[in-house]
């Protein structure tokens, strides 16, 4: 444990490892492979890497074509372009025909810190979650990234996976077994629940430490699979604790917070408080930490939201 792992490198390495075991995997890239780390795959399997240039729409269509003939087609781009520029291709040519295409949304969330709002993705989870047939993954650390990539390649159908452009604190041991669709209880607790996704899981864990000092026993959930959502674990948290604080590097509209609120309200309700980007676009910053602080994606803010939820309850 301890230390940090580059999420993108883990994505690229996992694809290489999968490529060694399975000769039926192709990777498509749109002139960002040195950033998405699809480059690692190219180095080992140049004949199975298709560099399509800056043409995300064609890339997704081509991936669909490969899937139609029995290949597992992985296509990477920045999350904002994959889910935005190529959305309609994903909808019509991948999700609707239920094809075996995997989409890697790189530089996700605010992790393309310097490039600003144009390159930051705060709606990709919402967009992808709303598509029938789509599985949506958002791993929390490098170890989980590798497990999630492996798992997504075993799914027979469309999968979107979020990949941050950061070295994320490692939360898991090497022997961690990723289980698609199953929430991981990172820390048991009975007072309040912090449900986080992606690299916000470690923010939630730090918030839980702070809350512990306040005498509050917080449960921390790692929601690595946004869809299909592990409703059982969400409802257990709603039942067994005073309420749920969701934490995501995403707009509070449409992502994890919305998904959790949908499940809880359908089951009769209970407090859900959403921590995330509050329906504004991102901006450039010198450091990722600065940007997270600007949008309240910090342990201190999560702690404050948890406290106010408990006061209401």
């Amino acid at each position: 444990m301890a230390g940090k792992l580059e999420m993108r490198e883990c994505y690229g390495q996992a694809l290489v490892e999968a490529g060694r075991e399975n000769e039926r995997i192709v990777l498509l890239e749109a002139d960002l492979r040195k950033s998405t780390m699809g480059e690692l795959f190219r180095q080992e399997f140049p004949e199975r890497l298709f560099e399509v240039g800056i043409a995300e729409q064609n890339m997704i269509g081509m991936a669909a074509g490969f899937a139609l003939t029995g290949w597992i087609a992985v296509a990477s781009s920045f999350a904002v372009f994959a889910s935005g520029r190529a959305f309609e291709q994903i909808r019509q040519s991948v999700a609707l025909p239920r094809l075996n295409v995997k989409i890697g949304g790189s530089s996700a969330g605010l992790t393309d810190t310097g490039d600003g709002a144009t390159h930051q993705s705060i709606a990709d989870l919402a967009i992808m979650r709303a598509l029938p047939n789509m599985t949506v993954l958002s791993p929390a650390d490098g170890i989980e990234m590798k497990g999630a990539v492996k798992a997504m390649l075993e799914v027979d159908g469309p999968v979107y996976i979020r990949v941050g452009r950061i070295a994320a604190p490692t939360l898991y041991d090497e022997d961690y077994k990723f289980e698609l669709g199953k929430i991981v209880v990172m820390r048991p607790g009975k007072d309040v629940t912090l449900a986080a996704t992606g690299t916000m899981v470690h923010v939630a864990l730090e918030a839980a430490e702070l809350l512990a000092k306040d005498g509050i026993d917080a449960r921390v959930l790692n929601v690595h699979t946004i869809k299909p959502l592990d409703e059982e674990a969400i409802l257990a948290a709603a039942r067994e604790t005073a309420g749920i604080v969701t934490v995501e590097e995403h707009n509070i509209i449409g992502g994890l917070g919305s998904a959790v609120a949908e499940v809880v309200s359908a089951a009769g309700g209970g407090p859900v408080v959403r921590v995330g980007v509050e329906d504004v676009f991102g901006q450039s910053a010198n450091s990722y930490e600065e940007l997270l602080a600007a949008y309240g994606l910090t342990p201190a803010n999560v702690r404050a939201k948890a406290q106010s939820l408990l006061q209401r309850a």
Partner: peptide, 30 residues
């Protein structure tokens, strides 16, 4: 393609079928 026997690809949103055709063609070569 999931409903009609003989349909090779779902299409209807213009511009997309050609790209899927390219993927199919390259897969065939591979």
């Amino acid at each position: 393609m999931r409903k009609t026997p003989g349909v090779d690809m779902t299409s209807g949103s213009l511009g997309q079928g050609f790209a899927a055709g390219l993927g199919m063609a390259l897969a065939g070569k591979l």
